[in-house]
Structure formats: structure tokens, C-alpha cells
Design a protein around this nucleic acid. Structure first.
Lengths: 189, 189
DNA sequence: AATTTTATTATACAGTTGTTCAATAAAATT
DNA sequence: AATTTTATTGAACAACTGTATAATAAAATT
């Protein structure tokens, strides 16, 4: 036995309600009362599953994260050639994933949203990076793997922030080119 | 004429009230009503200056940012030797600054806090990086300066996140060593 | 020092939040 | 199909939010 059908029904209704409200207004302006009214779910039931609006959104977020992870199941599927540098296939799909869910990431990177979402994204990329470092023995004895992958994954996210601030008006392909160019610089000395 | 004395008095009282509450409880659990009661300021007055608790905190944040900026006025003051790499003095002071305001950054990096604070920190470092790139002509024609400095500054913040998650149980000096080691890797191919 | 300007206060109101409880209805188990 | 388990409901409560108003007090200007 897994999950009660009533719970599934409730959560589905709440998800759909939030998503339809998000099409019209910003996340921080949407109240719990409002979501429940639209979903025809008792407010007390909301509190049985979540603590705040953001927790409900986070559940939706995890669905999107699945897409990010799935992109890496068939790694070289979308990549034609990697000539300029040893860019791992995980990295090379991140910008495409963001581009695909542009609308969603406009919310994730907005100022008033809790840092928790950023961390969810960071952790997802962090893990992929780390796996790649270990798989390809790119490890230097003086550098802690966690530090290096934290450095690298957040660097990518730095580019995404910049991209977001320019209203995502670059293609994912252009972003990859920029990344390749940056990686080919010898940043240390 | 600059600012009304009454406004200064009000803001001082609110600042002090928030800080003393923060010593006992988490930011997200502190209500406006509570802050005002402790500060002996009318709640309506709070709304004349701020919209939410976080706005008040942000004002305090900007004070801390001044310290970060000031660290760079006398750049080599604290640096004994930079041998292993061309680490710019701005970069080398960031970890020390964070260490100095450890308590404060425990709030800034906590999950429930709005992304806005992260951006304030990011922008501060971003600007310092950018200035350094331009001053030292480290620019490659294929790389947009904004992208590069976004990449680099957020990479540093990635290390800070990792540091924070390890409860800041490394010294700022150790963090600098890690950074030097990472920069000396040739990340691109 | 008198006058003007403006920040702060006290009060009030409708809406949201977070929590609790007994009653009910729906699902799982036998 | 009958019974047990448990999610959902509806109602109520105190506290907080966000906003508006007239009265007051404090600061700035003349």
C-alpha cells in the first residue's frame, strides 16, 4: 500500500489550483485561502500536507528536477560534437533544460522567493558534477571534491542568473559557447 | 537637509529590536507586530518605511555590505604573500569577511530567507570581480565580461554555500587555499 | 519665536494565518 | 459486505496583516 487516493486527489487539486493562479499573479501574492477556495479543498487539509504556499510549489519543483535528471539518462543524445573543450554532457544540457522551463525559472530566480528553490537546483547540478568528477578521475589531491563541485556547479548557476537577468534573451547553444570559452581561459595565474 | 530626526529615531529603534529578536529566534518566525511592540513604535509607522520584516533586515544587510566593500580600500593590508596564483586581493578578502559576520551569514544562507539577500551579496562580489577584470585586462574577446564575472563570483559563493553547510568549520585561510588549488586546475580540457 | 510641514500615533476594519475539535465521508482491511 | 482506519470537512478562535483615518507631536523653515 502506498498513498491514500484521497491524498492524491487533494494534492492534484491543489497543484492545479496553484499553477492556474501562477499564470495570472506572482507566487508571493497568492494566499493559502485563495488556493484552497479555487481547489475546493478545506484549508485545514492544506495544513495537513503543507505549511506554506512555497511548500506546495516545492513539490511541483521536484517534478521539474526529474526532467533535469532524465536529460542525463541518454547523455550524448542531443550533443553533436564537443570540440573546444572537455565539457561533460551533464553541463551541456543544463542550459537547454532551463530554456525548456523558462517560465518556471522566472519564478525560481525572482527576488522574493525563498532560497530553498535555489538550493534544490544547486544540489541537483552539484550531484551531477560530483559524479562526473569521480567517474573521470579529475580529482586533485589538494582539492576537496565537494568544494570543487560546489565551485563549478554554482559557477554555472552564476551564468544562469546573468542569463535570467537578461530575460533569457540568449539561446541555450550560445550559453554553452560562452561556458566553453570561459573554461578555456586559464583562470588561475 | 537630509533625513528627519524622527525617521532616524524610528529606524534605529526598529533595527535594534529586530537584532535583539534575531538573537533568540529565526527571521521567518518574527512578526511585524512583535518588532514594533519591542521597539515601542506604532505598527503603522513600520509600514510607512517597510513592507515586510525582510525589508528591515535588508537595510541591516546593506551595512554589512559596506564592510565588505571597505575591506578592499586597503587591498594588500591583510595579505602577506600570494605565491601560488594571481589571486586578486578582492577575492582573497571575501572569506575573511564572511568569517567575521558568521552569525549574520547563517541567516542569509538559510532556506526560508528570500533570494534577495543572496543577490545583494552576489552583486557586491560581481562588481568587485568585474572591476578587477577590466583593470587587469583579463578579457578574452569571445567571453562577455558580465558572463565571466557572474561565473567567477558565483563560483566563490558556491564555495561559501559548501562552507556554510559544513557549519563554517574551516578557517578563512583554508578556504583561500582551496580556492587557489581550484584556480590552478585547468578546468577546461 | 511663530508658523508650516510632516512623521508618528491611536484606532478601527476586513482578510489571512495557524491551530484545534468533533462530525462525516471515503478508502483500506478483514 | 461489514468493519476498521484515516483523510477531509466545517466551524470557531486568537493573532497577524495590510490599509485608512483623524488627532497629535515633533522637526524644519521662516
Amino acid at each position: 500500500m502506498k498513498t491514500d487516493l484521497r491524498v492524491l486527489k487533494t494534492k492534484d487539486a491543489l497543484h492545479e489550483s496553484l499553477l492556474s493562479l501562477l499564470k495570472e499573479r506572482a507566487l508571493e501574492s497568492i494566499s493559502i485561502t485563495e488556493i484552497c477556495k479555487a481547489a475546493k479543498i478545506n484549508r485545514g487539509t492544506f495544513y495537513q500536507h503543507y505549511g506554506k504556499v512555497e511548500d506546495l510549489f516545492e513539490e511541483y519543483f521536484k517534478e521539474i528536477m526529474k526532467d533535469l535528471a532524465e536529460s542525463y539518462q541518454a547523455p550524448y543524445k542531443y550533443v553533436e560534437r564537443i570540440e573546444t573543450t572537455k565539457l561533460n554532457p551533464a553541463t551541456i544540457r543544463i542550459f537547454h533544460h532551463i530554456e525548456k522551463f523558462k517560465k518556471f525559472y522566472f519564478i525560481v530566480f525572482s527576488k522574493n522567493v525563498p532560497l530553498a528553490y535555489y538550493y534544490l537546483l544547486f544540489d541537483e547540478i552539484h550531484v551531477l558534477m560530483k559524479e562526473d568528477f569521480i567517474a573521470h578521475q579529475k580529482i586533485d589531491k589538494d582539492v576537496a571534491v565537494d568544494m570543487l563541485s560546489a565551485y563549478q556547479s554554482n559557477a554555472i548557476l552564476g551564468m544562469v542568473i546573468e542569463w535570467y537577468r537578461q530575460d533569457f534573451n540568449k539561446s541555450a547553444a550560445e550559453m554553452n559557447e560562452q561556458l566553453v570559452a570561459i573554461l578555456n581561459l586559464r583562470l588561475g595565474g
